[in-house]
């Protein structure tokens, strides 16, 4: 029973061990800070956005592709959302604008990969620049303040409020992650994503529409980016043209630290969520442990390499 559970969940479990070891190490280094619940509230404010982005990235990578354009998709979706709010539009419409602009940008990324047959590594890298360039051109590099419109609006309390001690964006992230886990592990879509990433010829022979499945994974990222755009606007009360930029490397790192390998066919959404915590605590932990910010990149690298080594030696053995 237990061994079967371990066997089926090797990757998330080893991701969890890494997180636990990290937390223990930090607590030993600075017990006062790490036993203080306020630290966790602080982390829970910034982490949800990474979690929401990491979940669909697992699908893209398990399907055998990569998406480097998601930070700019967050950007355009947040821009669309901010423009609607600034123009005094209905906030529900602003939400729909963010989600549909995100989904459309994702669709475009997917079509470039599956229909135009471009390399996903290069084409999404290009799209990341292209979309960010459009935002910069359109906004002339200026932010859009949203304080006046959002200050007392339900929009703000729904997306950046608090439910007791828990920030609402954390609740959004939890809900999004649960849906992601269900889709990946128990839904036809997740099963087909894995088959496509594992052996696309065989998937095609068995009647799976390989292009459609891959395109949908990009649309899924786009929808996540739309949600992140909404949360980000609600949280900051201002739209910056560089919205989303900071997520690129840390979110990808979280997915890989969480135990999703680069080669496709397998992945773990739970692991990616755990990986997000690991990466998130590195930054907080380093500063709390009294080290200068200069150590951050060093520790990022160290954690990534150690995690990958951990997953490497924790593979189920193949005969």
């Amino acid at each position: 029973m237990l061994s079967r559970f371990i066997d089926r969940n090797r990757r998330p479990i080893s991701a969890f061990v890494v997180l636990a070891v990290l937390l223990i190490a930090f607590t030993i280094a600075n017990p006062k800070v790490f036993l203080n619940p306020q630290l966790y509230t602080a982390v829970f404010t910034s982490l949800p956005l990474s979690i929401i982005l990491a979940v669909p990235l697992v699908f893209v990578i398990a399907a055998g592709e990569i998406d480097l354009a998601f930070p700019s998709v967050v950007g355009v979706a947040a821009w669309a959302c901010a423009l609607v709010i600034q123009a005094g539009g209905n906030h529900l419409f602003a939400v729909l604008a963010a989600l549909s602009v995100g989904a459309l940008a994702g669709l475009l990324n997917g079509l470039l990969v599956t229909r135009a047959k471009l390399s996903s590594l290069v084409s999404t890298l290009g799209m990341n620049f292209l979309l960010r360039g459009l935002i910069n051109l359109g906004s002339r590099g200026e932010g859009i303040p949203l304080t006046a419109q959002l200050n007392d609006a339900p929009f703000r309390f729904i997306f950046a409020g608090e439910l007791g001690p828990i920030p609402t964006q954390m609740l959004w992230a939890i809900a999004f992650a649960i849906v992601g886990v269900l889709l990946f592990n128990y839904h036809k879509f997740g099963a087909q994503v894995c088959c496509v990433g594992d052996n696309q010829e065989s998937a095609r022979e068995m009647g799976i529409n390989v292009e459609r499945v891959r395109t949908l994974t990009y649309v899924y990222v786009g929808i996540a980016a739309g949600l992140v755009a909404i949360l980000s606007n609600a949280l900051n009360l201002i739209f910056w043209p560089n919205t989303g930029d900071g997520f690129l490397l840390s979110t990808l790192a979280a997915v890989f630290v969480g135990g999703t390998p680069t080669w496709g066919g397998v992945g773990t959404v739970t692991g990616a969520v755990i990986g997000t915590f690991t990466v998130g605590f590195v930054t907080t932990g380093i500063i709390a442990a009294g080290l200068t910010g200069f150590w951050t990149q060093f520790f990022y690298g160290l954690i990534i390499i150690l995690s990958l080594l951990g997953h490497r030696f924790n593979q189920p053995r193949y005969r």
């Binding site: 269900l182 128990y186 839904h187 036809k188 879509f189 099963a191 087909q192 894995c194 088959c195 594992d198 052996n199 010829e201 065989s202 998937a203 022979e205 068995m206 009647g207 799976i208 066919g265 397998v266």
Partner: peptide, 29 residues
């Protein structure tokens, strides 16, 4: 087909039902 007819990292059950998954509510397997 002779070669590489299966998705090797997936389970036997998933391979058997590949492309024709047994689904119920909302497409869940």
């Amino acid at each position: 087909y002779q070669d590489k007819a299966l998705a090797e990292q997936q389970t036997i059950a998933r391979n058997i039902f590949m492309g024709r998954e047994l689904t119920g509510f909302l497409g869940f397997i």
